[in-house]
Design a protein around this nucleic acid. Sequence first.
DNA 1: TACAGTAAACGGCTGGAAGC
DNA 2: GCTTCCAGCCGTTTACTGTA
Length: 359
Amino acid sequence: MSNISQFIQHINQHVFKSLLEDLPSEYSTFKKYKQIRFMRTLMASTVDLKGCLNTPLIINYKYKVIPSVQDFKLQVLISLMLSPQTKDEMTFDAFENMFMDSLKLHTRGISIDYLKSKSFEEIDALIKKVGFHKRKAKNIKDLCMLTSAPDSYEDVIKINGVGPKIGLLYMQNALGQNMGIGVDTHVNRFASKFEWIKHKSGRTPLKNPEQTRDLLEASIDKRFWAEMNLILVGFGQNICTSTQLPKCDVCLVSNCKDRRTKIDESLQNGIVKDIEDLDVSYLHSTNHEKNYKKILAWKILVQERYGIEMRYGNEDILGDWDKKFDNLNKELYGYNLLQHEKLSEPPLKKVKIEIKSEF
DNA sequence: TACAGTAAACGGCTGGAAGC
DNA sequence: GCTTCCAGCCGTTTACTGTA
């Protein structure tokens, strides 16, 4: 696949297409995951905008560069290698620093040739914001010894600084192959907290992500593996935070045993109760109008109370990067030069309404 | 109340130690 | 020799405490 917009389309359609489906009813153990998933379809998170797939997408788009598929894969890998122990915002900034630097030398952005031209010290200076920047700079510099971006899981985890989680996310985001659940701290935390997995001994494993991955993969259909990381990381960043106080008062997860903030009973019995059992099928349901009002009330509540950005209109969880690249492609090649796509404004972003528990 | 300083938590990979 | 366990790496962020 040589065309980047086809490539992005492939990732969206093949790896993350499960996001358009409801979770099958036989997954009763995963009721809470269904509720988290529903929240995530309504709400944007840092990981959607500055996660390891979208970082190269956004940066290429921002600087009007159409990367080759090979360079794009390498950029996804670098963005993933920068991410451990580092907030998404910092990873994004470090990647952008490298990208801007690459434009001084190459018009096509970060590539193996670019890495060959930089010293370890120069790379280190560019990624100074991320944790373990010295080790990461060395590992990224070593990528210049590759002839091309890795094309298999076995090849990618041979690289220093790439473990199972990074390897699996690379397979999903750079090669479009869904080989397993990328278990990071959030996935591990929620799998134990909501008791989706249980060790044979009856204990829920807390410290071993590989064990969590095996048990989770055994309990849920393969087509849902890829989305789990994206869904749960966003939920962990926005609602069920570990460092800040979690926002239990607006959380749609029912009967959570680990609530750490005061609950407004009228909210829980009103808006939250009203929509906690909905799923993505609400869009197609005959009750769409009724559900829409309830969901809108929840969105406004979360946005007003916590400033969390919501999704409006037809924006979906993956964004429309394939379209953007397609348009950019046309612009750069002289087609539709005057036709710049505008992002549709959230139509109801600043509407203030009184939140009532009943409609 | 505002600010400064300090302590602790977070986070995935790596490599050494311990156990089998 | 292989597997498992765990401390350490390092910078950011948040919560807490003390002081003015």
